[in-house]
């Protein structure tokens, strides 16, 4: 295969991946953030303590988290058809991707929010603040650097999941790697997709790190931990490490 033949295929695959990952991340963040906060609030000693709700959400999240994505995708087909009217293509892949990412992100949110100093919550309560005010003024802003890191991790996980979306004809880079690289023995194509994925993932991680760090540094770097930095050091002397040197 020549470059002129493969180039449009790759461009289309990039857009497909971006489309699927973009939408499913958005949905995962929108749904996972409240879910994660709810997990903290309803827990024992939380502001909205409710053991039953906590256990139910926790259990659902655990099951969804432990499900292999490819099985989740097949298992959700009826639901997917109900939502999108089809079980194949990019739109159809977004549904299981989002459903898989919501509990993933919710757990990360839960971890980040738990790191917020309970004294701050107490301070706002002592001022007469409501639970909603505590969430808005304390839990989310104080956990923000860590939440950004969590979102970065989620995007990267979703890129990984999206490779499997090819099995429902959703396209994307993973699909190209499998169909051209593996099934047609076009090793070159496979390596190109690997390279693209590596660059994209590294860039995402770097951007996420820089944003999280700048927020973290502004607020003095105390409290809240940055989650998972699997790619730290992959590209020596990159923006992330430069940022560290500058500070």
């Amino acid at each position: 295969m020549t470059w002129s033949e493969i180039q449009p295929v790759l461009t289309q695959a990039c857009w497909d991946t971006l489309y699927m990952v973009g939408w499913s991340t958005l949905i995962a963040v929108v749904a996972g953030l409240p879910l994660g906060i709810l997990l903290v609030l309803t827990d024992k000693g939380g502001l909205l303590q409710n053991v039953v709700v906590n256990k139910v959400i926790g259990q659902v999240v655990n099951i969804a988290r432990s499900m292999p994505f490819i099985i989740l995708m097949v298992a959700l087909m009826t639901f997917t058809r109900w939502i999108t009217g089809t079980t194949i293509g990019r739109e159809a892949a977004i549904v299981p991707l989002a459903i898989g990412a919501i509990p993933f992100f919710a757990r990360l949110v839960e971890m980040s929010v738990r790191e917020v100093d309970g004294g701050l919550v107490e301070a706002v309560q002592s001022m007469g603040g409501s639970t909603w005010k505590v969430v808005r003024s304390v839990l989310v802003p104080e956990a923000l650097p860590s939440l950004i890191s969590g979102a970065t991790t989620t995007v990267i996980a979703l890129i990984g999941y999206s490779a499997m979306a090819g099995t429902v004809g959703a396209g994307g880079l993973g699909d190209v790697a499998v169909r051209y690289g593996y099934q047609r023995f076009e090793t070159g194509v496979m390596w190109i997709t690997v390279a693209i994925l590596a660059v994209v993932i590294s860039l995402l991680q770097i951007v996420g790190d820089v944003v999280a760090r700048s927020l973290h540094r502004r607020s003095g770097g105390s409290g809240g931990l940055l989650l998972f930095r699997p790619l730290r050091g992959v590209l020596p002397g990159t923006v992330a490490t430069e940022a560290v040197k500058k500070s």
Partner: peptide
């Protein structure tokens, strides 16, 4: 009633994501 009782803490409990001024504004926002 709580908003009419001020409280100071051993570990200050200031919001690190807010400036000094915004921290002081917090009870007024409430």
């Amino acid at each position: 009633a709580r908003s009419r009782i001020g409280m100071v803490f051993q570990h200050f409990n200031l919001l690190s994501s807010r400036t000094v001024r915004d921290n002081i504004e917090l009870p007024l926002e409430i």
